[in-house]
Structures are given as structure tokens and as C-alpha cells.
């Protein structure tokens, strides 16, 4: 599964990290970093991360 975050929308609020901490995390400067390619077994968690993003910046295929 491919994951992408529109960094022009992302405000680094980090809500996605609570849903899928193995895919999304904030670095020491508070900037979002994420895995662009994620195993299909994590689809439910990543879909939840898409749902809770207040900026609706995350998309998956």
C-alpha cells in the first residue's frame, strides 16, 4: 500500500501518529515523517490515520 502526505496541507499536528505509530511519527523538531510504502496488513490502522487528520492531508492507494 502506498501512503503519501500532502506536505502543503500538513500542519504536523501528529494525530496520525496515534493511529499508526509504526507508519507516522514526529521527529525531534516536530516535523512529520512517514513510510511511503506500508504492508497491506496495516491498512486498517493507516485508514484510521487518514480519517483523523484534521487537515485531510493523507492519501493511500
Amino acid at each position: 500500500m502506498k501512503v503519501s502526505v500532502d506536505m502543503s496541507k500538513c500542519q504536523h499536528y501528529g494525530q496520525c501518529c496515534y493511529e499508526a505509530e509504526d507508519v507516522f511519527r514526529l521527529d525531534d523538531d516536530g516535523k512529520l515523517i512517514y513510510l511511503a510504502e506500508v504492508d497491506e496488513s496495516r491498512r486498517e490502522a493507516v485508514e484510521s490515520a487518514v480519517d483523523v487528520c484534521p487537515m485531510q492531508a493523507i492519501s493511500i492507494d
Partner: peptide, 10 residues
């Protein structure tokens, strides 16, 4: 402007 500092509070 303090998202990283807020993380533990949740």
C-alpha cells in the same frame, strides 16, 4: 506552535 511538547499530554 508547540505540537511536539503537547504529545505526552494526550
Amino acid at each position: 506552535d508547540s505540537v511536539p511538547q503537547l504529545v505526552p499530554y494526550r
